[in-house]
């Protein structure tokens, strides 16, 4: 449910650190709460993101949720495939359902995020 190699944000985004780049998506818990994802509104490559601020929106049939960036930096890649197949977020939230890659401006922000164990405890509260 919550891979151990990832770190998690309280708004239910996960981060996979690859060097100075953070790959960001939403957790299994988040996709399950949303239900069938029908649309993901993502920013563009080159845009700046700030930790704890929104970078996009995700929609199910009858809900809209904001997506929060766990880190600050510049977007270096966006998962454009989600515009045609948003359901990938449900099917593979930690793999093909990733959303953006951010070149981090402050790698220490990662330290503030939760481990898989802490996150699991957090969502079970």
């Amino acid at each position: 449910m919550y891979p151990g190699d990832l770190v998690y944000h309280k708004e239910h985004e996960w981060v996979r650190v690859e060097g100075d780049v953070a790959v960001i998506g939403i957790s299994h818990f988040a996709q399950d709460q949303l239900g069938e994802v029908v649309y993901v509104d993502l920013p563009s490559t080159g845009d700046a993101v700030t930790a704890d601020e929104t970078f996009g929106e995700i929609e199910s049939v009858k809900s809209v949720s904001e997506l929060y960036s766990p880190v600050s930096g510049e977007i270096v890649e966006v998962n454009d495939a989600l515009s045609d197949t948003p359901e990938t977020v449900n099917a593979d939230p930690y793999g093909d359902g990733w959303m953006i890659k951010v070149k981090m401006s402050d790698a220490s922000e990662i330290d503030a995020l939760m481990s898989a164990g802490d996150y699991e405890a957090f969502v079970n509260e």
């Binding site: 649309y39 929609e59 049939v61 009858k62 809900s63 809209v64």
Partner: peptide, 12 residues
């Protein structure tokens, strides 16, 4: 595409 509408997106 109801997520555009007031009953879901409210003030937005």
């Amino acid at each position: 595409l109801s997520t555009r509408e007031q009953h879901i997106r409210r003030e937005k």
